[in-house]
Simulated assay, not measured.
Amino acid sequence: MSQQGWTATGVIEAPLDEVTAVFLKVTEGPVNKDNAPLLNVVPGAGRLLGSAVLRGGPTEFTIRYGPRPGGTVEVEVERGYFAFQGGYKFRAEYRFTAHPKGTLLIYRAINVALGNHQDRAAVRFQFWLGGALKVGLRGSLRRIGKALGCRTYAGS
């Protein structure tokens, strides 16, 4: 079965290098506004990160919630890329590229469940909520704009 999911875009009216310097900063240690700040804007994930800690690096990390593993984080600053995969079914990817008004954000939410699990009701339901996740992206763009002191808006 092919990957299921959706893609949405947004524009951040700040230079690409400024956006990536702030939002692609990831090191070992607790997740907070200065370390892996994009995790706090992943739609639906921010509230789960109070005790989250990253281990590994420099480009691949494991995220732990207390003693339990909670997923993986990948970051490639030079390519403007950040990904978070929680558990076995959900992956969020952020790609930042230059745009005439600053920076283009391409956000993908992907069903990465194994083929025999992709069609299970719980997994299908999660991706049926794509509209709610798009609303979450608009909230993420607002938080990014506030952090950078710039205008942001959703694309397609």
Results as ranks from 00 to 15, higher is better:
98 A>P: 06
25 K>Q: 13
24 L>Q: 08
99 H>I: 01
140 S>Q: 05
57 G>S: 06
151 R>I: 10
45 A>H: 07
123 V>M: 13
144 I>H: 07
7 T>V: 04
138 R>F: 06
134 K>V: 11
127 F>R: 00
122 A>V: 10
38 L>V: 01
148 L>E: 09
29 G>A: 07
97 T>G: 12
150 C>I: 07
15 P>T: 03
32 N>V: 06
72 T>G: 05
25 K>L: 04
155 G>R: 08
95 R>H: 09
61 F>M: 11
76 E>Q: 15
120 R>T: 08
104 L>E: 14
116 N>I: 12
82 F>Y: 15
36 A>D: 11
56 G>N: 06
78 E>S: 07
54 L>H: 02
113 A>N: 08
104 L>I: 05
1 M>A: 09
104 L>Y: 04
36 A>V: 08
9 T>A: 10
94 Y>V: 11
86 G>T: 00
17 D>G: 07
154 A>Y: 02
103 T>Y: 00
151 R>M: 04
46 G>R: 01
16 L>F: 11
136 G>E: 07
18 E>N: 05
113 A>L: 07
120 R>W: 09
88 Y>N: 12
5 G>P: 09
134 K>C: 05
13 E>Y: 10
99 H>L: 00
40 N>H: 12
128 W>E: 07
80 G>N: 07
21 A>D: 15
152 T>A: 05
27 T>A: 09
108 R>C: 00
62 T>F: 01
116 N>C: 06
139 G>L: 10
48 L>K: 06
112 V>R: 09
106 I>Y: 05
37 P>I: 05
65 Y>E: 04
26 V>F: 06
44 G>D: 08
142 R>M: 01
20 T>W: 04
33 K>Q: 13
35 N>V: 12
141 L>K: 08
92 A>N: 12
34 D>W: 07
143 R>T: 14
66 G>S: 04
58 P>I: 10
118 Q>N: 05
72 T>Q: 05
108 R>A: 02
69 P>M: 01
52 A>W: 00
20 T>R: 13
1 M>G: 11
141 L>F: 09
141 L>M: 09
76 E>F: 13
8 A>D: 14
129 L>E: 10
104 L>N: 08
101 K>D: 00
94 Y>P: 08
41 V>M: 04
95 R>E: 09
123 V>K: 11
90 F>I: 12
103 T>D: 00
26 V>Y: 11
79 R>N: 14
156 S>F: 13
20 T>D: 04
28 E>W: 03
101 K>N: 01
107 Y>G: 02
32 N>Y: 05
26 V>C: 10
75 V>E: 14
130 G>R: 15
129 L>M: 15
150 C>R: 09
27 T>L: 00
119 D>F: 12
8 A>L: 12
51 S>Y: 02
13 E>S: 14
35 N>Y: 13
72 T>K: 04
49 L>V: 07
139 G>P: 01
107 Y>K: 03
11 V>D: 12
122 A>D: 12
17 D>N: 15
120 R>Y: 12
152 T>V: 10
83 A>M: 10
20 T>K: 13
